[in-house]
């Protein structure tokens, strides 16, 4: 039994934003993080259910893919629009979030709002240049996901509501992706995860994104590695070199899941494996896990 003084179930965004503008309130959708992790309930007395706002859409419009705040992980994992985008890296990230029951409840927006460094969807979203559309009393604002996360469980969201996430589709046909997760057991919170997107022209990498999870206070875009990829041939040698950069750039911690040293080491492995997938060089033997 949670100590909650009121449950609100608004039906319009304006109503929801107004409710959330008050102290001691938080938005709830799937509830799978919120209700089981006391850290999200500190100071919370009332909850605002956002599932009746009509936000459970995934749609393509004007060159953008929009994922509403109500869309569950399962929807994200199963929709063809997402399975076809950059080898389906976001769909695959969503498909390894928790268990099937959790994926039926948890939302993609909730995964972003929770802002945990080990989450499985932010790396793919960052690699796809996603943006977050926030709604508050002052109206709507669009924040690139790249500048959304501030620290563990901290973001620039404040009291705003995530209305949707959006991904630019321009040129996405040429986008190839990879995602690799390393957990302790088959179903686990990531010790390290990595997502990559590449555009390859005439054998050379023309664009690269490389993002790692659980190696820093926020999902880490490794710009130095991205720069090192561009202009290079998409080969094993290039990837190994980039992995060394990643090894230097990550700032992991030691916790009860893994030591910093181990995370640093496997961040290089996850990098290479994600890049190999993106370049179509992955060997099946590596693909034990969901990646």
């Amino acid at each position: 039994m949670l100590k909650i003084a009121a449950y609100h179930s608004p039906t319009t965004l304006i109503e929801a934003a107004a409710l959330l503008a008050e102290d001691g309130r938080t938005a709830i959708a799937g509830g799978t993080d919120l209700l089981v992790n006391p850290r999200y309930m500190v100071g919370v007395r009332e909850v605002v259910d956002i599932r009746r706002l009509g936000l459970n859409y995934i749609r393509v419009e004007n060159g953008w893919l929009y994922i509403g705040a109500g869309a569950t992980m399962r929807t994200v994992a199963q929709r063809v629009e997402l399975q076809g985008l950059a080898n389906g890296i976001l769909a695959r990230g969503a498909a390894v979030c928790g268990s099937p029951n959790i994926r039926n409840m948890a939302t993609l927006a909730g995964n972003i709002a929770s802002a945990l460094p080990s989450a499985d969807t932010p790396p793919a979203l960052l690699a796809l240049d996603a943006e977050v559309v926030l709604v508050g009393m002052r109206g709507e604002r669009v924040v690139p996901l790249d500048s959304f996360f501030v620290g563990p469980a901290k973001s620039v969201r404040e009291r705003d509501l995530i209305r949707e996430l959006r991904i630019p589709l321009a040129g996405s046909n040429a986008l190839r992706g990879g995602f690799y997760k390393i957990g302790r057991t088959a179903e686990d919170i990531s010790m390290v995860n990595a997502a990559a997107t590449l555009k390859i022209q005439d054998g050379k990498i023309s664009m690269a994104r490389l993002v790692l999870g659980a190696v820093a206070p926020v999902p880490l875009r490794v710009s130095r590695a991205e720069e090192a990829l561009v202009g290079q041939a998409a080969t094993e040698e290039t990837f190994q070199r980039v992995a060394e950069i990643v090894r230097d750039e990550v700032r992991p911690i030691t916790d009860h899941r893994a030591t910093a040293e181990y995370r640093r080491r496997i961040s290089a492995v996850a990098t290479v494996r994600a890049l190999r997938q993106a370049a179509g060089l992955a060997t099946p033997g590596e693909e034990w896990q969901h990646a």
């Binding site: 509830g31 799978t32 209700l35 268990s99 099937p100 409840m105």
Partner: peptide, 29 residues
């Protein structure tokens, strides 16, 4: 477990299997 980590409290809500421990009863309206 009470934390959504074992699926022991699985029920079907509108045909989807979910964990009843990490959802508010009010949300089942």
């Amino acid at each position: 477990c009470g934390t959504g980590d074992c699926c022991g409290c699985g029920v079907l809500l509108n045909g989807n299997s979910i964990n009843a421990c990490c959802m508010l009863a009010a949300q089942a309206e």
